[in-house]
């Protein structure tokens, strides 16, 4: 379990990152927290010729609130996300998700940008930014472009990120006062969820974003509408038409659908309890 040979370089500015991406193209991989990438290297599931360490790029760091937007730098570690007062105030859903992410050692290194760019369909943060209707800021030599979370996740481990781009930050419209809950079922604490749900309600609206039930995190608009109308059973019933979960080692598709209904019931109770 040794990685194939690779070169390592450390970038300190975005310009250096863009240089490397231009020169090496797909053969370069960006190293942030490394919590998935390094394992993939050791398993030889990934064998880039260049590992470009972006941990020193200041432009990717920090959490700010300005002009009515919460901006979370891509290098924000999970542990920082969970402890940040601005996140707790404006995007409490993210703060609630953090304890569910793996284990403390992983949360100390793993980054929100890494998690979103990897787009593991069973991970918490992609579903959270989907529920938050956040915008992902993608930087390239040409400048920044903004992609809605709903358009960012395009398939299994596939995102809207182009080869010359870096995920720079996440911008979240403020949700102060929102009720929110993260519900997930994992066989052991810290494992990827069999089924998970990031849910939020504010005013009349309800957002439900599922993880572990498909190739990408998913919203379920019919269930959201039913839940917004106070019809929990209707929301649960709607899931059969909106989710088409895969079977795997945990069990058949029917298991996931059943568990999703259970989680929806629990999420509804949690949202109401706020």
């Amino acid at each position: 379990m040794k990685p194939a040979p690779f070169a390592y370089a450390r970038a300190s500015t975005l310009a250096e990152v863009f240089d490397a991406l231009e020169t090496h193209g797909d053969a370069a991989r960006l190293l942030a927290g490394g919590q998935s990438l390094v394992a993939a290297l050791n398993l030889r599931l990934a064998s880039p010729s260049l590992l470009l360490d972006i941990n020193g790029v200041a432009a990717l760091r920090g959490v700010t609130f300005a002009d009515g937007l919460l901006r979370i730098g891509a290098l924000t570690r999970h542990a920082e996300l969970g402890a940040d007062p601005l996140v707790a105030l404006h995007a409490p859903l993210l703060a609630q998700a953090v304890p569910h992410i793996a284990h403390a050692a992983i949360r100390n290194r793993g980054t929100i940008g890494g998690s979103l760019a990897l787009a593991d369909p069973a991970a918490e943060l992609p579903a959270c930014v989907l529920a938050l209707e956040a915008v992902l800021v993608l930087a390239s030599r040409a400048g920044e472009r903004r992609v809605a979370a709903g358009d960012f996740f395009q398939g299994l481990y596939r995102t809207a990120l182009r080869g010359d781009e870096v995920l720079a930050a996440v911008e979240v419209p403020p949700r102060a006062g929102a009720s929110c809950t993260v519900q997930e079922l994992a066989r052991r604490h810290g494992d990827y969820a069999i089924v998970g749900l990031a849910a939020q309600s504010l005013g009349q609206g309800v957002q439900l974003a599922w993880f572990g039930v498909g190739a990408v995190p998913l919203r379920t608009p019919l269930a959201e509408a039913a839940l917004a109308a106070g019809d929990i059973a209707g929301a649960q019933a709607a899931l059969a038409g909106e989710l088409d979960p895969p079977g795997d080692l945990h069990g058949p598709p029917a298991l996931r659908l059943h568990l999703a209904r259970v989680l929806l019931g629990r999420a509804a109770a949690a949202l109401k309890g706020h």
């Binding site: 079922l185 069999i194 945990h250 069990g251 058949p252 029917a254 298991l255 059943h258």
Partner: peptide
């Protein structure tokens, strides 16, 4: 596992 207990309960 849940995949064994839930069928026994008739839940799936």
């Amino acid at each position: 596992t849940p995949a064994r207990i839930l069928p026994a309960l008739g839940k799936i």
